[in-house]
Nucleic acid binder design. Structure first.
Lengths: 369, 369
DNA sequence: CTGAAAGCGCTTACAG
DNA sequence: CTGAAAGCGCTTACAG
């Protein structure tokens, strides 16, 4: 007994329908129902008839038609690279900010996914097909040539772009300062041998975090040691692999005092491997992450991290984009073109403590996992 | 030196523009560029001219116009309640499935947020304004009256609906069986005093998990003990509060052997409070969650959980919705109306071990946090 | 095989 | 204050 078939797949009522019922033209109906500023007011009694008809029919303006007529969809696109097929904590935080601000400004968010930046970047123009008014690019791997590729009829805002592009506002945070402050904080706690699980060096964010790490050590008079910098990706398993690899290459050497990870997920992987090998965080070794994403609060012990205001940054991206959209229609609307930089902040949690008086040593054999 | 102003905010080229350059009508251009099945083929040389003109201009079909003409947007809406303003792990997993399937079927996903189901449910009709072809409702709190509220011209698919509505396909999973199997598994490991941090009783999912818990205990001949069932929400802090409250009310009593939490975030909060109070998971007490979300893999130790195939369920929602959208246009397209139920599965991780030979006791005073 | 008309549902601008 | 026209950019269906 299917329950569906008794539901009539009606078409939605239109202005013409409303006009017919109210005995006026569709235009008159438009004026009272949808128009933002129809100076020519409709006579009160006509108006009442129209409103009654609309209510009776359950009329709603057709968004596609309105969009076509006004060339404004009230939809902003969000393009994101899904590494390994998964949207992650980073995106979730940013997106929370985007949809919150979008809802507050009566916009909707449409999500576009790229599986690989370099392969899919050429699809960007086809996303700008009139169904969105502007696009937020999350973590674009821009090269200068991309400037020519972006369609001119759509405004773009980038979040954590790898490269500045003319005409594209970039929202970022002072990652280098964040990393610097975190490492100084670790040193202040007494740590000196600080392992850095660093992101890929072709990524601007990873470069900045590494620079902050190096500068902080230098400023504290700690000699930089390349064996304490390990390349890794951004996922939990990347963190596991990197930590395992480092331990395997350092058998019988003293454990580092602390590990500074390029992001929280890597820190989680790192803590996991440390636990597997019998080390206690933070008693034997301290661990810190970056981003202060949800993952930082779901570990036991909770993770000390550098907070990026991802949510605010997502909201700021919407604001900047809306300003640029409006600016296109009305050049009097003010806009910024320069990058918008958010401050970072250290969030102290339980994963960092002063180092033990005598460091434990890396065992001869590492758990394979 | 703003770099923006030198970018001309061009309008996008149209079929008319292409036709003008190629010396043909816009209709001819449409036939070669956009038409899916124009039986009347354009002459090869005309065709070539049109293609060349389109390439030269960088022509892309305007999505809003096409949508209006075909009454098909290729956009599916995803409406979700943001509890406490945040999209969570549950949504992230579901959404991963949605966008993966959407990308595979050339659809886009537009996200609509409701802050409170009961207050905002009446906004649903205004979302169905021709910019989406159908809507996925994530976790709707349906009551029978809602059937009248949903606009008839848009198909809906629900995920984890609280109540079946005629004409709305529901995607769910066998949560009761999942809970049942998990509790039996705990009993098989030797646990008998099993605390349940249960979700709100007005939520169907919480009811099902509680029923599974009760049935499993009954089948194992363990007397049900109401002091071992505690009401809680779904977030990390809810889990913390619930666990703290239970401990505070059970001072000097033996610690439960295990805690079965209504979801993973609650389990994380629970583990956190246990750690605060000096209890080790799983040595002193075992903990299990539900959902197998990302959070289950970011705890140390990792969390045993009941896996819901949220990602697949999200993908299935897209499939079901697309079928119903097509069915509206062409009744020959087959559709299901009944609920689609996914199996659950126990994922064993490190947070569950047989109970210690002698249970520790709850201390007289609990850490306030 | 190709052209010109009519329409999707709305809005803007121009007459009365 | 109200009506009828023209247009947003596309597609479908109907003539040639």
């Amino acid at each position: 007994m299917p329950s569906g078939p008794n539901r009539k797949p009606d078409r939605a009522p239109t202005l013409a329908d409303v006009g017919r019922v109210a005995g006026v033209s569709a235009v008159a109906a438009s004026a009272v129902l949808n128009s933002s500023r129809t100076s020519s007011r409709i006579a009160p009694k006509t108006r009442a008839r129209i409103l009654a008809a609309a209510a009776q029919l359950g009329y709603r303006a057709n968004g596609a038609a309105r969009a076509l007529a006004k060339s404004r969809m009230n939809v902003i696109g969000v393009a994101v690279v899904v590494r390994g097929g998964d949207l992650d904590h980073y995106f979730l935080e940013v997106f929370n900010g985007v949809i919150e601000k979008a809802a507050a400004t009566d916009q909707n968010a449409m999500v576009f996914t790229l599986h690989d930046w370099h392969a899919d970047v050429q699809r960007l123009p086809e996303f700008c097909d009139g169904r969105i008014d502007g696009m937020i690019l999350v973590g674009p791997l821009f090269t200068p040539e991309h400037a020519a590729l972006l369609p001119r009829h759509t405004p773009f805002v980038a979040l954590h772009a790898n490269h500045d592009l003319p005409g594209v506002v970039n929202i970022e945070s002072d990652e280098e300062i964040g990393a610097y402050n975190l490492v100084r904080y670790l040193v202040d706690q007494g740590h000196r041998r600080i392992l850095h699980l660093a992101g890929h060096e072709h990524l601007l964010g990873a470069q900045r975090r590494l620079r902050g790490y190096r500068r902080a050590l230098a400023d504290c008079g700690i000699k930089s040691d390349d064996s304490l910098v390990v390349d890794t990706g951004y996922d939990l398993d990347d963190g596991r692999r990197a930590m395992r690899k480092w331990l395997a290459g350092a058998s019988r050497q003293p454990l580092p005092h602390a590990v500074f990870c390029v992001n929280d997920m890597v820190a989680v992987g790192c803590m996991d491997v440390l636990a597997e090998n019998g080390f206690k965080v933070p008693d034997d070794i301290s661990v810190a992450g970056f981003d202060d994403s949800l993952a930082a609060r779901t570990t036991v012990p909770q993770l000390t991290s550098v907070r990026q205001q991802l949510r605010k940054m997502g909201a700021a991206a919407v604001d900047a984009l809306l300003a640029h959209i409006d600016h296109r229609k009305n050049p009097a609307v003010p806009v910024t073109w320069g990058p918008i930089v958010f401050p970072t902040e250290i969030v102290q949690r339980a994963s960092v403590l002063p180092p033990p008086s005598t460091s434990r040593r890396v065992p001869a054999t590492i758990v394979a996992g």
